[in-house]
Design a protein around this nucleic acid. Sequence first.
DNA 1: AATTATTAAGAAAGCGCTTTCTTAAATGTG
DNA 2: CACATTTAAGAAAGCGCTTTCTTAATAATT
Lengths: 332, 332
Amino acid sequence: MATIYEVAKLAGVSVSTVSRVLNGRSTVNQQLKAKVDNAISLLSYSPNSVARSLASSRSNSVGILVSEINSHFFCNMLTAVELTLRQANKHSIITVGHNDLEQEQEGVDFLIGRNCDALILHVEALTDDMLRKVNRDNTPIALINRVVPGMEEACISLDNELGGYLGTRHLIESGHTKIAYIAGPTSKVDANQRLAGHKRALKEAGLKIDQNLFYQGNYLESDGVDGLTELLKDNKEFTALVCANDWMASGAITCARDMGLDLPKDLSIIGYDNDLLAHLLYPQLTTLHNPIYDMGEMAAKYILNTVYKESNPIKNLFGPELITRNSVSPLP
Amino acid sequence: MATIYEVAKLAGVSVSTVSRVLNGRSTVNQQLKAKVDNAISLLSYSPNSVARSLASSRSNSVGILVSEINSHFFCNMLTAVELTLRQANKHSIITVGHNDLEQEQEGVDFLIGRNCDALILHVEALTDDMLRKVNRDNTPIALINRVVPGMEEACISLDNELGGYLGTRHLIESGHTKIAYIAGPTSKVDANQRLAGHKRALKEAGLKIDQNLFYQGNYLESDGVDGLTELLKDNKEFTALVCANDWMASGAITCARDMGLDLPKDLSIIGYDNDLLAHLLYPQLTTLHNPIYDMGEMAAKYILNTVYKESNPIKNLFGPELITRNSVSPLP
DNA sequence: AATTATTAAGAAAGCGCTTTCTTAAATGTG
DNA sequence: CACATTTAAGAAAGCGCTTTCTTAATAATT
């Protein structure tokens, strides 16, 4: 790899001049600029961004840390973030934290050590204090799916409670009154919010909350199977089932079919997230759209605003939207 | 952020000594080491990897460039690569090329400029020559799903032809003789290989290749719908359908159901890739497993061997495996 | 024409580390 | 005890850039 010195030598100018044409800042004489450009292409020179970054303490790249990378959900988010940043000529450095405190911590350190101009995080293990500290220490942060007190304007999140409410209300409006629920893990804020919305809808309709119609799941497909199996025991009565995410709904659908139920006539099912799989299921799943793509885009735009002087309008709270397909049937 | 100087000052030693304990190379006096360790934790010092990388021209990170990041396929691969590297204490810098020559080129330059010790690439636009050049220029490369003459040992690929053969042979063994085919784009090597395998199986069984039973698709779900619609026109006779990937098979299944066909009795369908969606479809899809996770892991191991002196056994060619589910029914 | 203000380009310092070179101390040898 | 050999720690150079500081040349002002 050629260095800036070789370019300067070949062009017969100083390195400062080369640096200037490289960065297009101060005006450089046209002829000199031409010479430099020529030398650059002759040597097929490409500046070393590590050196650049060290010297300028900027890097034109933002660090992205996600919990996992093995689901469509995160891919969707990453695609949006990467694309938005790329369009602004910024690079993405993507790292994975596996929901583990140590790994998330290490990931953040790595990204900061790499001179990232900012971070976009989707993390669970790091505490609010840690996040606030990083933010104070001169590395701007955007947070997805999390609200940290004191840095609200940097948080892009989803109104999970509203989604929970809308889903259950849809069932109620379709005539259902006996509604079972398979919940997500209590350790996750979003799962609790979704459940809270469900309860609000029941309450509003004057329906009682029946602990017999509740199953504690963990967001996995198998929890849908186990949950519905459990709920169907003892001939409990219900005509509709709310699952806190689409994967559990998928498991429930498989289970219901295996039990010989005719969907959606015998049982209406509703999911959450509008994952890619929702429209592949049979019957196609009615669910709540989780606009994670848009949220990723928004987080990127927030960073472009704070670090790179753009001025995009920012929206911090996103609303889920009911997507009606074929897994809910009205009760007469 | 504290620097190595502050650590040295606080510990009362020279920066060289701090650097030595940091890198654990030459022996350092126990007492001094203790002092340094103490100073490090007192200042919660974390070395700047940009500076480190510039000084040592190593970075302990490998660059990963993939075509896209919005599919389960790539996520799977990335997960494997990231995990394998992480376990060896190496970091991953992930970038996306969007199958565009300029973007792929830029991505490679970015990663090299970031002093990546090596690259793992899943690219289509970059030419063989370009890849060989990068490889010669001192940046070791591993290639996934591509074979570049002259650097075979760095290429991890799938025997697509074999998969094509196995799928069609499975149908033939189940008694089918009239088999339609929805192909992937001719611009993709893997698509052509899959088709070649299909033809070999037909030939071997003495069946003729019928152009009427062929549809040219593009790997999209909608191509499955369009393809089957087209094939069903004019009452063409066939009892089985091979799709060059699972997404097209998914489209075909939806289409078949919409046309009132009873699957798999009226039509056997087989896919390719064993994408996550395969087991969600109804009927669950018989398909060929594409071991992309294992391939990603292998590519990472190859890099660990060449750059970081490990010595894992390397396998360059992976074989697909038939996964039988419920979308193929035997003909009497 | 003499002075000041502006501009363009070079010189050099510095970003935060690693690593080679040097020096001083500790150890071994006859 | 004088000398050679090994070892541990510090000094300093350098990685490839950016950016501030200088200086020289040009333009503007009175």
